[in-house]
């Protein structure tokens, strides 16, 4: 036991300097992408229209389009990897993906794990889909009621703690919505932009999005934490800045039929070139 302790101490003392060096830019990921000629991007494949599959099995959507723009700018090939909420940060940490654009909400706890790069490319709030007949007006009306949700969403815990609702979590969106139809819960809690698109399809007659959206939070794309303040992080900042300025994000939003958000409009105006006409 003493031997082990001594060994561990020796190791930690010996490795100490390396930890300090790791803070400086080695640009491992950036260099690796440039050398191998392939940028591997983690995107969602179960979040229409942000990232979903066509019948050939290819992943398409707004975020794959953004990934393609990044790869084109870097002059490398693009490889898309389907990630889910529960593994996207681990994949990036492990190096399985170089960049993650996967509908991730920018949260403080997540910034400790991955390098989330600003300016944020999108924003969404939390809202519910509920039958009109129940006449919900405010979040407090939900107290003590069963509410369906999807596993891994950060707002599940928030609404549970703040309003005392009983979250009934499902693995997929279809299952959760079916549960709402089967009246196993009084509402379906989800992103407001997604609920908006759902209602716009006209297949949810008798349902509404009655509450004021809460926790409007920006979405962030992420690079490995070590690259945050290095070439890759600064490059991604620049990409997003340009997307906001030249209206690329607004175009993509329209292309994929996403409900227009005031956020993208205001960012576009704020970053407008003062010399342009």
């Amino acid at each position: 036991m003493k031997k082990y302790l001594a060994l561990t101490t020796a190791l930690s003392v010996g490795l100490g300097p390396f930890a300090a060096i790791a803070q400086e830019c080695t640009n491992d990921t950036w260099n690796h992408v440039m050398e191998s000629g392939t940028l591997t991007v983690g995107v969602k494949a179960d979040y229409k229209p942000w990232g979903f599959r066509n019948t050939d099995g290819d992943i398409i959507g707004m975020e794959p389009d953004m990934a393609q723009l990044v790869a084109d700018t870097m002059g490398v090939d693009l490889e898309l990897v389907a990630v889910v909420s529960s593994n996207r940060m681990q994949f990036l940490e492990q190096g399985q993906i170089d960049l993650m654009i996967a509908t991730m909400t920018d949260r403080p706890d997540r910034r400790e794990i991955v390098g989330i790069i600003g300016p944020n490319y999108y924003t969404s709030g939390t809202n519910i889909l509920a039958p009109e007949a129940l006449e919900f007006d405010e979040w407090e009306d939900l107290r003590g009621q069963p509410v369906c949700a999807v596993q891994g969403a950060f707002y599940n815990q928030i609404v549970e703690e703040r309003y005392g609702v009983e979250i009934v979590a499902f693995g997929g969106t279809a299952e959760g919505r079916q549960a709402l139809r089967d009246r196993r819960c009084v509402a379906w809690v989800y992103d407001d932009s997604s609920i908006g698109s759902t209602l716009a399809t006209g297949e949810w007659e008798g349902f509404e999005m009655p509450l004021p959206s809460e926790d409007d939070s920006p979405w962030g794309l992420a690079v490995p934490l070590a690259e945050q303040n290095c070439i890759f992080g600064n490059f991604m900042s620049g990409m997003q800045y340009n997307w906001h300025q030249d209206g690329t994000l607004l175009e993509l939003e329209e292309k994929w039929g996403i409900q227009p958000t005031p956020y993208l409009q205001s960012m576009n105006e704020r970053m407008a070139d003062h010399l342009a006409e």
Binding site: A45, D46, Y47, K48, F52, R53, N54, T55, G57, A82, G171, G172, T173, A174, E175, R177, Q178, R181, T201, E203
Partner: peptide, 17 residues
């Protein structure tokens, strides 16, 4: 996994389940 993704691509209608 692909079944879920296919249902998502088809608009996640509960009738697909």
């Amino acid at each position: 996994n692909f079944t879920r993704q296919a249902m998502e691509a088809e608009g996640n209608r509960p009738e697909l389940l």
